[in-house]
Nucleic acid binder design. Structure first.
Length: 278
DNA sequence: CAGTTCGCCTGGGGGC
DNA sequence: TGCCCCCAGGCGAACT
């Protein structure tokens, strides 16, 4: 489940390894990966384009090509491999293959097939694209201030974890880091909040920054690693305080970590350290 | 309008 | 060992 730190790790790795290569052709083996435009158009437009920059907003990878933005969302299990074709093991899970002008390929691999790619002319503002129209400020965007967040949440009544997972408010947080951010905040993930005052929004932003920046530093979290994938062998799993630790001991208070569901998602928390009070 | 459910997918785990 | 069933999970769409 690549969230901001894992996507950032992939972004950095590809930026370092690929540089400015040109796309010779593209094979699309599972058409549903291509969200926009239709597959034939996608293949035709991307041909001859050069990778210029490797960017990211929230969990979205944004490849700036000569004339287009190629946007990729890895969803649950999407991975990119970059190498010569003979060094990449053939797989039924390889769905999009970019053939490059340096004899190498960029392969999109996705067991669940949930990932999506989008291609838009650079003249179209990213915030106006179907891919990103509902995505708010990236968690590290300087525009994400306590005042701005408080304004977005004015008059709203939200469950804490549900708000953290809503990409409209803060982009980049997924299930693992939402649990960890709630722990850092010492708040129960299921806590209902109806007044997001500036002080509490500042605490949310601080907790988000500290958890995510440490995770980026550690190269992300690798929980299930049945396939070693390019650039996504992180170490943050060693620092997880609650996620995936059901029944284990809280490092702070020695109580047992519990698992529940919040908003339909598996949720881990310490019943002693995390309370419901503002 | 907000909250819930569904559909997209497949590997893995549990039950037997 | 093997088979069946169900679940996880991000996110948009459909539904209540």
């Amino acid at each position: 489940m690549p969230e901001l730190p894992e996507v950032e790790t992939v972004r950095k790795t590809l930026e370092l390894q690929m540089g400015q290569v040109q796309i010779v052709s593209v094979d699309v083996l599972w058409p549903n990966i291509i969200a926009e435009p239709n597959v034939e158009e996608f293949k035709a437009l991307v041909k001859g384009q050069t990778f210029l920059e490797f960017k990211r907003i929230g969990k979205y990878l944004i490849f700036e090509l000569s004339d287009y933005h190629l946007i990729a969302h890895l969803r649950m299990e999407g991975k990119f491999f970059y190498d010569t074709l003979e060094h990449i093991p053939p797989s039924k899970h390889s769905h999009v293959i970019f053939h490059l002008d340096n004899q190498k390929v960029l392969v999109y691999h996705d067991v669940r097939k949930f990932g999506k790619m989008y291609l838009y002319p650079k003249s179209l503002e990213l915030s106006k694209t179907k891919a990103l129209e509902n995505v708010g400020y990236d968690a590290f965007d300087p525009n994400l201030t306590a005042i701005a967040l408080s304004k977005m949440l004015e008059g709203k009544r939200k469950v804490l974890k549900t708000m953290l997972l809503d990409q409209h408010f803060i982009a980049g947080i997924g299930n693992i880091y939402a649990d960890e951010i709630c722990f850092r905040l010492k708040r129960n993930p299921a806590m209902v909040i109806d007044t997001f005052d500036v002080d509490f929004c500042q605490a949310i932003i601080d907790a988000t920054h500290s958890v995510l920046s440490k995770a980026v530093e550690e190269g992300g979290t690798t929980i299930r690693s049945y396939t070693s994938s390019l650039g996504v062998s992180g170490r943050f799993q060693l620092y997880l305080q609650v996620h995936m630790r059901e029944g284990e001991t809280c490092y702070t208070c020695n109580d047992k970590i519990k698992k529940t569901k919040v908003g339909g998602r598996g949720t881990y928390y310490c019943p002693t350290c995390q309370h419901h009070e503002l």
